[in-house]
Amino acid sequence: MSEQTPGPGDPQGGFEQRTRQVLEESVQRLDGRTRSRLNQARQRALEAHAARERSPLSWLAGARGRFAPAGAVAVLALLAVVLWDARPGGDAPLAALAEGAAIEDLELLADNDALELAREGDPEFYEWALAEADAAGAPAVGT
């Protein structure tokens, strides 16, 4: 291909070097106003960067970036389980399990006594209940 970059001894190479020197010189000769405005532009850009860093949203965006792969895998896994469970002819065991657990949780929440017991804790009551159950030959309370 003829589009080879010329070597140092090549007149084309000298031409490239000369044009580069002239352009460099033109940059050195930029006036004060232009240099000042370029400096201001840079400062504005850096302020924008700092403002972005200050914003909590930027942290969320960063966190999203960091956790995105793990989140995507979790979502895909969940989707796979749901689709498997909902396939035609499936016995939907997970749905039934979840439904049963939900009903138990609701009963526990609705039962004020059970909540109070769980909160306060009463070791003497548990010992008594266990002894009663043993004496009666019945299964212990709560088993």
Binding site: R29, L30, G32, R33, S36
Partner: peptide, 27 residues
């Protein structure tokens, strides 16, 4: 803007003229 009033680094007049021409032609 005081910085805008600052002089740029420039070569002596004759060389500057040649350079002006070169820069102008190249640009």
């Amino acid at each position: 803007d005081p910085l805008a009033q600052a002089a740029s680094a420039e070569p002596p007049p004759v060389a500057r003229l040649e350079l002006d021409e070169a820069i102008g032609a190249l640009e």
